[in-house]
């Protein structure tokens, strides 16, 4: 199965708010650290190496 590129996030605005709220009081350093952890947590949800490669390529 390839990467989902059609809308798939349940309630996009709520998600985006959660993300920005989480980092509102953070310094760049703290937010970047959090982002790194978040990437790893989400990567584990995807699991499949080929899909992770696709995601890395898309983000470059």
């Amino acid at each position: 199965m390839s990467l989902i590129l059609t809308p798939n996030i349940e309630s996009p605005d709520d998600f985006y708010e959660v993300l920005t709220e989480a980092q509102r009081e953070m310094t760049d350093e703290q937010a970047n650290d959090m982002n790194a952890r978040l990437v790893l947590i989400l990567a584990n949800q995807i699991g499949s190496l080929s899909r992770l490669k696709e995601a890395v390529a898309l983000s470059q």
């Binding site: 790194a36 990437v39 947590i41 584990n44």
Partner: peptide, 20 residues
């Protein structure tokens, strides 16, 4: 380095990060 430290941070709390 940020990713490396993120892996180490998470490995304490969540098993999924340990193989990394």
């Amino acid at each position: 380095k940020r990713f490396r430290n993120a892996v180490l941070d998470l490995a304490k709390k969540a098993k999924f990060a340990q193989p990394l």
